[in-house]
Write a protein that binds this DNA or RNA. Structure first.
Length: 809
RNA sequence: GCGGAUGUGGCGGAAUGGCAGACGCACUGGAUUCAAAAUCCAGCGGGGGUGACCUCGUGAGGGUUCAAGUCCCUCCAUCCGCACCA
């Protein structure tokens, strides 16, 4: 029989053109009824000059398969794409190539768009946004102004994280193990005037609302750890022969009687003040040395160092005078910057006390007895109190909860909660970002640019290279910097710092649904109709960056009435990374980057889409191996041949075929629902192999089964499915077919194959009636294993539909 | 140090507590071909047996169960996150 060959190029070209003419994703159904929306969002890329590699494809394929599955279920899919085009990567590339970042960015967008088109995803380009578009960043600036008005954006000068290579300040979230998240350079400190966003004001809500999110446990845990809430007490310790008090924060007020010394951070206000004359020289030297140490050194030098101030403070419970030390293991920006030290019950305090010969007093007896000669701290709050005055005999675990209130009642402290979360260092000393819309007026102070004057456009500048001085390149443009105050008209100066790349990405998903609105960030109607995001798909690398910032922005916009939901992303899926053949992250410098372009050309979009999913479970990393794509391509070719044979030789549907068909619907649907996309593909291969076997006997497969196959396949291989659907005589798109429903009556078998075991080891397989009773089943089983049954039968087990197990001695 | 993930043939991986290795890649043999590619058929965890079969086997060791890759306990390795947060 002469066969037409599967020609991916012709088929894919044909359907790409048809879809362009007649969009398949429509907001209303055949009868003109409005469909329910489903917003499936990809983390938008920054337009890198390197283009896409097969790893980018994977995420976009996953989201598109999911979108098309929802489309087949009758939803209107909101599936937009855009460009995170401000920021350092774009700027650094532009500097390297010697072109303006606006030009290189626009070029890269065009290139990547062509590559993205090859995926054949359902993107609605009418919604496209670009963070560098003034019509977009007008609203990025507008949000900043609203935050400023609410006191959530403020200026502060303090030593911030500084990347000497990127020549800009960084947020805490951008410092990973003491290095710059972007370029990996060691981060230093630099004293700079900064714009800050008061994300800490939202700490509690950001923590609490994590509960309601359908997000990976890992990401929720990372955010909750980053926010770092703890319960405890602040306690005052009076300084001897002084009016001063030292306030400390502790999560273990139950151990207060065990506090035998105190430590101040070197930067603490009292550190210098409490130095006695005898200790002044050594103390000041220590404080100076600490100030010269980088954060990395401080983090890595775990060996305790410190200096005694010469002063004493009184433990408010034991009434003892205890020595006050200075040490850099206490951090100035957490709690009060001072701690009470209970060496018996804290590892760090124990180490310090041992090193400097400070008294250690145990106040919790592990099993009712004090440990003689402690060799390590006993840090659990389990056991009864000793050496603790009135508290003796109480259970530590109980006291831990009550002590804070007891301290508060006694008048020397209060119960408090603390967070590790810090405010967000928001300004960057670089060119390629949104100008911060603030004017510094000598009379009025900081005044926001009036809303009607937004967007405040990024001016052209002769040199956009970073200055490295802590000033943005914008500071050099005098006629831009100098302006008049919008309030009083006096001469004033513009803020010259720009926003971080996160500014645009913190809210871009809101703008897609109303991207051309000049009057509002998003209209109430569009918001109600299309927001929030139902499914968000992207890598895990943004767990405490973009994903935390977006939640903060959304909550703020909720508070000022712009949106009516508090959480932006209902469901989150983190796809695994595609690694190079060497098991390393794909990177240009390692030379292990695989481009999708040649694969699309050789095998077609549908084959690559399927192979991207077939490489492994979508949530796990996978090493790329080009050879595997032959497998899915072979699958499509075999299916194509099967289709041609069946068209040439029509056959009627049989009961067996109906069973197979509904089993296929059931399997594929389950696997899709479980997001087990790799086994969806293997499922198709299995059914394809079964159908081919049947066709060998029957000459072909009935039309109904092939139609079902086409619909099931449509989210994964959309062109192929359309071609198949059309070949079977349909004039309309397969995407209006609707997802097939499994009729469970076809799932039942009259006869089933069941394994027969002796002592749990399978010895034979028998075919018995599905509703056989135990006696019949066991009898059949025994017959099948025959003379291998040699011992005394102890037990006979029959689990219908599952197993026959004969236990013998 | 703390938290999380992962560990199954040569490789990627599959298995609601019920026949371990589906599906695919690679490989081997055969058919087809002048030849190759493509395609088709067969084989493909280890050991043993001519053979029907036997036996061991899911990182290691214990346990629960008629039955464990799967559940429980104790370890080991790799990767990821956090890390002096009092």
């Amino acid at each position: 029989m002469s066969k037409r060959i599967y020609n991916h190029k012709a088929i894919e070209k044909k359907w790409a053109e048809r879809w362009a003419e007649n969009p398949i994703n429509t907001p209303v159904d055949e009868d003109g009824n409005k469909k329910e929306k489903y917003y499936c969002l990809d983390m938008f890329p920054y337009p890198s000059a390197n283009g896409l590699h097969v790893g980018h494809w994977r995420g976009y394929v996953i989201s598109d398969v999911w979108s098309r599955y929802k489309l087949q279920q009758g939803k209107y899919i909101v599936h937009p794409m855009g460009w995170d085009a401000f920021g350092l990567p774009a700027e650094n590339y532009a500097i390297k190539m010697g072109v303006h970042p606006a030009i290189s960015t626009a070029e890269n967008v065009e290139k990547i768009k062509l590559q993205i088109d090859q995926i054949a995803a359902l993107y609605d380009w009418d919604m496209e946004v670009n963070t560098t578009d003034p019509g977009f960043y007008k609203w990025t600036q507008w949000i900043f102004v609203q935050m400023f008005k609410k006191g959530l954006a403020y200026e502060k000068e303090f030593p911030i994280n500084w990347c000497p290579s990127c020549k800009t300040g960084l947020a805490n979230e951008e410092v990973v193990n003491g290095s710059c998240e972007r370029c990996n350079s060691t981060v230093t400190k630099k004293n700079l005037r900064q714009w800050m966003l008061k994300i800490t004001a939202y700490g509690e809500r950001l923590l609490k609302d994590l509960d309601q999110l359908d997000w990976p446990e890992k990401v929720r845990k990372m955010q909750s750890d980053w926010i770092g809430k703890s319960y405890g007490a602040e306690v005052d310790f009076a300084v001897k022969e002084s009016e001063e008090k030292i306030r400390v924060y502790t999560t273990r007020p139950d151990t207060l009687y065990g506090a035998t010394f105190m430590v101040l951070a070197p930067e603490h206000d009292l550190a210098k003040k409490l130095l006695t004359d005898a200790q002044r020289e050594a103390g000041e030297a220590y404080i100076h040395a600490a100030s010269m140490k980088s954060n990395v050194d401080r983090m890595q030098d775990k060996e305790k160092t410190g200096v005694f101030t010469g002063s004493y403070a009184r433990n408010p419970l034991s009434k003892e005078w205890i020595p006050v030390w200075i040490s850099d293991y206490v951090l100035i920006d957490y709690g009060t910057g001072a701690i009470m030290c209970v060496p018996a019950h804290d590892d760090r305090d124990f180490e310090f006390a041992k090193k400097f010969g400070i008294h250690i007093r145990q106040v919790i007896a592990k099993d009712g007895v004090a440990i003689e000669d402690m060799t390590e701290a006993y840090t659990e709050a389990v056991g009864s109190m000793i050496n603790s005055g009135d508290w003796n005999g109480m259970e530590s675990a109980v006291l831990k909860k009550e002590a804070a209130h007891m301290v508060a009642q006694a008048g020397f402290g209060e119960a408090t909660v603390n967070y590790k979360l810090r405010d967000w260092v928001f300004s960057r000393q670089r060119y390629w970002g949104e100008p911060i819309p603030i004017i510094h007026c000598p009379i009025c102070g900081n005044v926001p640019v009036p809303e009607e004057a937004l967007p405040l456009r990024l001016p052209n500048v002769a040199s956009y290279e970073p200055t490295g001085t802590g000033e943005s390149p914008l500071a050099g443009i005098e006629d831009w910097v100098n302006c008049s105050c919008p309030v009083c008209g006096e001469k004033a100066k513009r803020e010259t710092n720009t926003m971080p790349q996160w500014a645009g990405s913190s809210w871009y998903f809101l703008r897609y649904v109303d991207s051309k609105n000049e009057k509002e960030l998003v209209s109430k109607e569009k918001m109600a109709e299309f927001l929030p995001v139902d499914m968000y798909i992207g890598g895990v690398e943004h767990a405490v960056l973009h994903l935390l910032y977006s939640r903060f922005y959304t909550k703020f916009l909720y508070d000022i009435g712009v949106v009516d939901f508090e959480e932006p992303f209902m469901k989150l899926f983190n796809q695994g990374m595609i690694l190079g053949e060497d098991g390393q992250k794909m990177s240009k410098s390692l030379g292990n980057v695989v481009s999708p372009d040649a694969l699309v050309d050789d095998y077609g979009c549908d084959s690559l889409r399927m192979y991207e999913l077939f490489v492994g479970p979508p949530e796990l990393d996978a090493e790329w191996d080009d050879r595997g794509i032959d497998g899915v391509n072979r699958f499509l070719r075999k299916l194509y041949n099967l289709l041609q044979d069946s068209l040439d030789n029509p056959v009627d549907e049989t009961k067996d075929m109906l069973k197979l068909r509904h089993r296929m619907i059931n399997d594929i649907t389950h696997r899709l629902d479980n997001f087990s996309l790799n086994t969806v593909i293997s499922g198709f291969m299995e059914y394809n192999n079964k159908l081919i076997d049947v066709a060998k006997q029957m000459g072909g497969i009935d039309k109904g089964t092939l139609e079902t196959f086409a619909v099931l396949l449509s989210p994964l291989a959309p062109h192929f499915a359309e071609e198949m659907w059309a070949s079977l005589g349909h004039r309309d798109t397969v995407f209006k077919a609707g997802w097939p429903v499994c009729d469970t009556k076809f799932l039942k078998d009259d006869e089933i194959e069941i394994a027969v075991q002796i002592n749990g080891k399978t010895k034979a397989v028998v075919t018995i009636s599905a509703d056989a009773d135990k006696e019949t089943a066991i009898a059949a089983g025994k017959e099948a294993i025959g003379d291998r049954l040699t011992g005394t039968i102890v037990k006979e087990i029959y689990v219908p539909g599952r197993i026959i197990n004969i236990v013998q001695k």
